[in-house]
Design a protein around this nucleic acid. Structure first.
Lengths: 237, 237
DNA sequence: CGTGGCATTGACGATGATCAATCGATGTGG
DNA sequence: CCACATCGATTGATCATCGTCAATGCCACG
């Protein structure tokens, strides 16, 4: 799929490809970022940082899919977010200058670029636009968190699942017209945790959606005949 | 009510009283804020701003309790936050320079101080510490939103209710030792929405907690014999 | 005294959690 | 190559819980 860009971790290409967090930075800034960054390959399951770790700087996903997990005191882990190429990770911990509150793990093979905390500090101080961009990203993330919190309280499990699938479909590349076909980047257990139900319940929900003709699936492979229908089911019901 | 009796809305006193968001601002900054602010009295039900409103500046709660609601497309309203004296409202919309995404309504009689967008802009530009403080507040709010999102997915309804009550108890004044007695600032419906269940289910949950000796209540008046026991029940189960 | 809003209760059907078993894919060792 | 163990996903059965509809109680207010 996107294995074409392997090796050439270039910020300009990276920012241009998706609508990444750095997309609307002025070109000279991107040049600096490009010089400062250190690329790193990730295998599936590799951790970028863990809950409680001191923040080591800013990370930017260049390939693959990253998962953000949070641990509850009771021990259960919950996936609270998914990051794709172009997205910045660790911005909150960086801005707060405190430890990470989430764990970032690679859900697929991929790569990230890292700017050390030291460099990032200088960068944000010299280029206020970068700082503003980071704040903007956090504000956006916060809007999402709050919206999802509301959705969690106001919508049915089925609607939440449809919404989540819709989001995954929308984010994934390779959607043509209204029909989508993709490989889910997350396990059933993670999926279940993201909408707050048990894996068994998720299985039944999946079967119902299949019975209703909304989706087809086999393992992690998912086919959505009509994305619009999926979105409609995520809105009400 | 009559402007004449309007009290001494003094930022120094306000910041000193609670651990407000302005608490660790340098004194000269507080002086400026004190001059810029315009106080306003609020009756129960008054709206400070509504979803979609352009942000008019920064608001700081000086007395009373404010509720933050969010509307889902389907029409259902959900209370997503509660603000008490010392807390700043509208910081996100101000930083983002966009419309509000929540509606702020007074849950009790109270008062807020407002700094116009124009003044606030000058202030944040001239005093970076104020800007940083606002960002810090947003980051903190985001941590809370994310944590609550996780809690929403990982914990039982009963545990979530205990957690919410514990938070309300902790925030309210007048808790002595381990026993707490307070008047809830929110209706049953709001309470139910905050943990994502129906009012009827909430009623039954309340009764169970009472049967278990965790709480006593009559209308909005709540008595918690052992705050520690309540916190314990919010952790697991 | 009646009315309307809020909270509670009951009854019933729908849904999810839990325990347990099965199935399929994958990987390992003989 | 086959047997075996393992992990993830699914299914079934059962019970607790929640949502829904309806009725009642409570209280403030006109």
């Amino acid at each position: 799929m996107n294995g074409s860009v392997r090796g050439t971790e270039n910020c300009h290409a990276c920012a241009a490809s998706g609508q990444g967090d750095w997309a609307d930075l002025p070109a000279p800034c991107l040049d600096i970022v490009d010089r400062l960054k250190r690329p790193r390959e990730l295998a599936e399951g590799d951790a970028l940082f863990r809950e409680g770790d001191e923040n080591a700087g800013l990370h930017c996903v260049s390939r693959g899919v990253m998962g953000l997990r949070m641990t509850h005191e009771s021990g259960t882990e919950v996936m609270v977010g998914i990051a794709r190429p172009g997205e910045v990770l660790g911005a909150r911990a960086f801005l707060r200058n405190g430890p990470h509150r989430t764990t970032a793990v690679a859900l697929t093979v991929g790569a990230v670029c890292t700017i050390s905390r030291h460099d990032a500090l200088r960068l944000t101080q010299q280029a206020p636009s970068v700082h503003l961009q980071l704040v903007k990203r956090c504000l956006h993330a916060m809007d999402e968190a709050q919206e999802e919190k509301m959705r969690m309280a106001a919508m049915s499990n089925r609607a939440r699942l449809c919404h989540l699938l819709h989001r995954l479909v929308a984010e994934a590349p390779g959607t043509l017209r209204d029909r989508a076909e993709l490989r889910l980047p997350v396990s059933r257990v993670d999926l279940a945790q993201m909408i707050g139900i048990q894996p068994e319940s998720l299985s039944r929900l999946f079967r119902r959606l299949k019975d209703d003709g909304l989706i087809e699936f086999s393992g992690r492979n998912l086919i959505v005949p009509s994305v619009a229908a999926l979105a409609a089911d995520a809105g009400d019901a």
